[in-house]
């Protein structure tokens, strides 16, 4: 049986992990390669590097990070952040990334998804969607009729409203050749008060490709809910693992006990 995946995400800026990983004694908790190795040993199912470097000059630093990681870690690695054309993607894949996540560039020019998918294959193109509930919708956790909920896509790290519906965008991304959706709730992100279950479920039911839920994980029950009620295929989390609140092993044990198929 296909298992549900747990995917730690590392934010990388100028070649350094932002906040770092503090769950074990690392010689250098800010080194992405060290952090990736620690998660590899801890039983992560995949890894995501999100490059939040502002300047494109620093792109080569990220390529070097990916190269060094891929020489030591034999686990699927997704890299996202600032990739604007097939050349950028090609460089990252050649460095050793397995998948690429596209966000702002794909919203600005949806055909980019198609070009990338045609050239590199749908299996390595992940479309990352940052979605926020429309202001007049109930908030996460408030009881409501899910049919009344609407979500808008945001770009530029969640700062710029794109004026398009998140569910529609997910369908379109699949049509254009995306192999997977990385779905982040901007309402949940950073709150540690739980994923947006309704959003995740709505997207997961709208597409046939796998959906990774992100944004809001604060405890293990949150992971269970988004996999179970939210129908996500995988969960992305940062803080709860980076700070050692829970280990990947504890999370998998907890989820397995509640009937989720896990790789343990």
């Amino acid at each position: 049986m296909l298992t549900k995946r747990i995917i730690p995400c590392l934010d990388v800026k100028d070649g350094r992990v932002v906040k770092g990983v503090n769950f074990i004694d690392l010689i250098d908790a800010g080194d992405p390669v060290e952090c990736a190795k620690a998660y590899d040993e801890a039983g992560a199912d995949e890894l995501v590097f999100l490059d939040i470097t502002a300047s494109s000059d620093a792109r080569n630093i990220m390529i070097d990070v990916v190269e060094r990681t891929a020489a030591q870690i034999f686990l699927p690695l997704t890299v996202g952040g600032g990739l604007r054309n097939n050349e950028d993607i090609n460089n990252m894949l050649r460095a050793g990334a397995d998948k690429i996540s596209l966000n702002t560039a794909a919203v600005n020019e949806p055909e980019f998804i198609q070009r990338a998918s045609n050239r590199f294959g749908a299996q390595c193109i992940v479309v990352a969607i940052d979605a926020r509930r429309l202001p007049d919708c109930p908030r996460i956790g408030e009881s409501c009729d899910p049919a009344e909920l609407r979500w808008e896509v945001f770009t530029h790290g969640g700062r710029t409203p794109a004026g398009i519906d998140a569910i529609e965008w997910a369908r379109k991304a699949q049509e254009l050749g995306s192999g997977e959706i990385l779905l982040t709730s901007m309402d949940g992100d950073g709150t540690q008060s739980g994923y947006d279950i309704e959003l995740t479920r709505a997207v997961s039911e709208a597409v046939d490709i796998p959906v990774i839920a992100s944004g809001g994980a604060g405890n293990l029950d949150h992971l269970h809910h988004v996999l179970h009620e939210g129908k996500a295929d995988a969960v992305l989390a940062a803080s709860i693992f980076h700070f050692g609140t829970y280990t990947i092993g504890q999370a998998k044990q907890y989820l397995a006990e509640r009937g989720n198929p896990m790789r343990i």
Binding site: M1, K4, R5, D45, G179, I209, P210, D233
Partner: peptide
């Protein structure tokens, strides 16, 4: 089963 996504992506036995 609509819950089975294609591609088959992830860890299996």
């Amino acid at each position: 089963d609509p819950e089975l996504k294609v591609p088959h992506m992830g860890w299996n036995r």
